[in-house]
Amino acid sequence: RMRTAFTSTQLLELEREFSSNMYLSRLRRIEIATYLNLSEKQVKIWFQNRRVKHKK
């Protein structure tokens, strides 16, 4: 599987969303994925990984 290289714009938006809410509803995940031109799965995994990073 290929590793996703997020653009700086995508990362900025993902981080902004994360700062306001660490957990996404499915609807919000779809909205963000569509807006950032990513798959729902990519957004889901990014949030999972970001939560782990946040815990450390």
Rank of each mutant, 00 (worst) to 15 (best):
S20H: 10
Y35T: 13
Q10G: 03
R26F: 14
Q10N: 00
T34N: 09
A5L: 07
V43I: 08
R3L: 12
E13K: 02
S25P: 08
T4I: 12
E40L: 05
E31T: 02
Y35A: 12
N49L: 11
H54N: 06
R51M: 14
E40K: 05
E31G: 02
Y23E: 13
Q10R: 01
K53M: 13
K53N: 11
N49T: 12
T34Q: 06
A33D: 02
Q10P: 02
V52Q: 13
K55Q: 13
A33K: 04
E15V: 02
E13W: 06
I45W: 13
S20M: 09
E15Q: 02
M2S: 12
L11Y: 02
S39Q: 09
I45D: 15
R1Y: 07
I30W: 03
S39A: 08
N37P: 00
R51E: 12
R50D: 04
L11M: 13
N49H: 08
T4W: 09
T9I: 10
W46S: 04
Y23N: 12
R26E: 15
R29P: 04
I30A: 09
R29T: 08
E15R: 01
R26K: 08
R1T: 06
K44G: 13
R50T: 04
L27M: 13
T34A: 07
R29K: 05
N21S: 07
K41D: 14
Y23V: 11
L38P: 03
I30V: 11
R28W: 04
E15P: 02
I32V: 06
K41Y: 15
W46A: 02
T7K: 07
Y35G: 07
I45P: 06
E31Q: 05
R28Y: 01
L24E: 06
L12R: 10
R3F: 14
M2L: 07
F18H: 00
I32F: 00
I32N: 02
E31L: 03
E40Y: 01
V43Q: 00
L11E: 15
A33N: 00
L36G: 02
V52F: 10
A33Q: 06
R29W: 05
T7H: 04
L14V: 02
M2E: 14
N37Q: 12
V43K: 00
M22W: 06
L24C: 11
M22S: 13
T34V: 06
L38V: 11
Q10K: 05
T34K: 08
A33G: 04
K55W: 09
S39M: 03
E13I: 05
L11C: 08
E17C: 05
L38H: 01
R51T: 12
T7F: 01
T34C: 09
S25K: 04
T9W: 13
L11K: 07
N49Q: 13
M22E: 14
M2D: 14
I45V: 13
L12P: 03
W46G: 03
W46F: 08
E15F: 01
I32S: 02
W46P: 02
L14H: 03
I30Y: 04
R29D: 01
L38R: 02
F47A: 05
R3C: 14
Q48A: 14
L27Q: 11
K55L: 11
K53P: 07
Y23S: 09
I32G: 01
H54L: 10
M2V: 10
I45C: 11
V43A: 01
S25Y: 00
Q48H: 09
E40W: 06
L11H: 08
S25D: 08
S25W: 00
R51S: 13
K41W: 15
F47G: 03
A5N: 12
L36V: 03
K53E: 15
N49E: 14
R51G: 11
L36M: 07
R28I: 01
S20G: 09
F6W: 08
H54P: 08
I45L: 14
H54M: 09
S25M: 00
M22L: 07
Y35S: 11
S19Y: 05
N37M: 07
I30T: 07
R29E: 08
L24N: 05
A5G: 13
E15L: 04
S8R: 09
S8Q: 12
L12D: 14
R51F: 14
S39P: 10
R1S: 12
L36K: 05
S19D: 11
M22N: 08
L38K: 03
W46Q: 00
R50Q: 10
N49I: 07
L24I: 04
T9K: 10
L36R: 03
T7L: 02
S39K: 02
E15W: 01
A5C: 10
M22R: 07
S8M: 08
Q48T: 09
S8I: 09
N49W: 11
A5S: 14
A33R: 00
E15K: 02
R50E: 13
K53W: 12
M22V: 08
S20W: 11
L12F: 11
S25C: 15
S19Q: 13
I32A: 03
I32W: 01
R1C: 11
L12M: 11
S25L: 04
R50Y: 05
S8H: 10
L24S: 02
R28H: 00
F18Q: 01
R3Y: 14
R51C: 09
K55C: 11
L38D: 03
R3I: 14
L12S: 14
K41I: 14
F6T: 06
A33V: 03
A5R: 06
A5D: 15
S25A: 05
K55I: 09
V43P: 00
Q42A: 11
S8T: 13
M2Y: 12
S39N: 08
K55D: 12
W46I: 02
R1G: 10
K44C: 14
L11G: 05
R51N: 09
N21R: 01
F6V: 09
V52S: 14
I45Y: 10
E31N: 03
I30G: 05
T9R: 09
Y35F: 13
R1W: 08
T9M: 09
H54G: 12
F18C: 02
L12Q: 15
R50G: 01
S8K: 10
W46E: 00
K41H: 15
L24P: 08
H54T: 11
V43F: 03
T34H: 06
Q10W: 03
E15I: 02
Q42L: 10
L11R: 05
E15T: 02
K53S: 13
R16A: 12
S25N: 15
Q48W: 10
M2K: 12
R26A: 15
S39G: 06
S20K: 04
M2N: 11
V52C: 12
E31R: 03
K53L: 11
E13G: 07
Q10L: 00
L14T: 01
S20A: 13
T34E: 08
K41V: 15
R26S: 15
K44L: 15
T4D: 13
T9H: 11
T4N: 14
F6S: 04
L12H: 12
T9N: 11
E17L: 04
M22H: 09
V52L: 11
R1E: 15
W46H: 06
L27A: 08
V43W: 05
H54Q: 09
R28F: 01
R29L: 08
T4H: 11
I32R: 02
I45K: 09
L36W: 02
K55S: 12
M2C: 06
E31K: 06
S39E: 12
S19H: 08
Y35H: 06
R26I: 15
L27T: 08
T4L: 09
N37C: 09
Q42C: 11
N49P: 02
K53H: 13
N37H: 14
Q10M: 03
E17H: 01
T7Y: 05
I32E: 04
T4R: 08
R26N: 15
F18L: 01
I45Q: 14
K53R: 11
L36Y: 05
L36T: 06
T9V: 13
S8P: 11
R29H: 03
F6R: 03
R16E: 12
Q10S: 01
